[in-house]
Design a protein around this nucleic acid. Structure first.
Length: 226
DNA sequence: AGAATGATCCTCT
DNA sequence: GAGGATCATTCTC
């Protein structure tokens, strides 16, 4: 995991996920990131949350991956070294955060789809437009705060200026799960919002989290311990 | 240069 | 559950 030479970021809060964490199979990392903590030391304060939902995207063999037809200026970061942030804009209005995986030359990444706020929730609510007026009643919902890749980026103030950022450095980095995730609470199912390779079960989420963006009740029942 | 498309979210019904 | 918002990227001509 974290190399000894890494700076002592967030000492006492958690263990930094180092470069070697990301240089592994994409689906292993997608599951391994559940329970990890995403930290953004933004100008407005430290914004961080516990990751509860991820999706894997790989080449070759996955036509939903941005890089399935080769390298372009947009997806260039996915082809680079692991442990960097691939941030792109979707539907003309939402930015999305991905973690580059595997190794340089292989285009693969994990989309971070949802976090539970741990610090800076008030700032997140403000950034999400959930403060004031009639919307104050919904401000307490973790799903509306940072459940969904677009919501997450808006809440944590993550945008395309962080594309290519080295995730083992400030201001944006990840910390290992403080306690291991129980295997029986992980749900594996299909991905959201794609039109190609729709049947690949490459989405993972924590069954007991209220911040999960889209639930799959059948998969939850299937994974439930007897 | 123009057109289609999309790893979404919100607001209605 | 359906439709609109809104624009960067990519493909096609």
């Amino acid at each position: 995991m974290g190399q000894a030479s890494e700076p002592p970021i967030a000492a006492g809060v958690g263990v930094l996920l180092g470069a070697d964490f990301y240089q592994r199979p994409t689906l292993v990392i997608a599951q391994g990131l559940l329970g990890a903590v995403l930290v953004h030391e933004s100008p407005a304060g430290c914004l961080c949350g516990r990751i509860v939902e991820t999706e894997g995207y790989l080449t070759p063999g996955d036509d939903a991956c941005h890089a399935y037809r080769g390298e372009t200026p947009r997806n260039r970061v996915m082809f680079g070294p692991p442990g960097h942030a691939y941030v792109y804009r979707s539907y003309g209005m939402h930015d999305m955060l991905n973690v580059v995986t595997e190794h340089a030359g292989v285009a693969a990444a994990v989309l971070i789809r949802a976090v539970e706020p741990l610090e800076g929730a008030a700032v997140m609510a403000e950034r999400r437009g959930l403060i004031g007026g009639a919307r104050v009643a919904t401000a307490l919902s973790p799903r509306l705060l940072a459940g969904g890749p677009g919501r997450l980026c808006q809440a944590l103030s993550i945008d395309r200026s962080l594309n290519g950022h080295d995730l083992t450095t400030t201001p944006l980095y990840l910390l290992a799960p403080s306690t291991p995730v129980e295997a029986g609470t992980v749900v594996q199912t299909t991905r959201i919002g794609i039109t190609r390779s729709v049947d690949l079960p490459w989405r993972f989420y924590l069954r007991d989290s209220p911040a999960v963006s889209v639930r799959d009740r059948a998969a939850e029942a299937r994974n439930r311990p007897i």
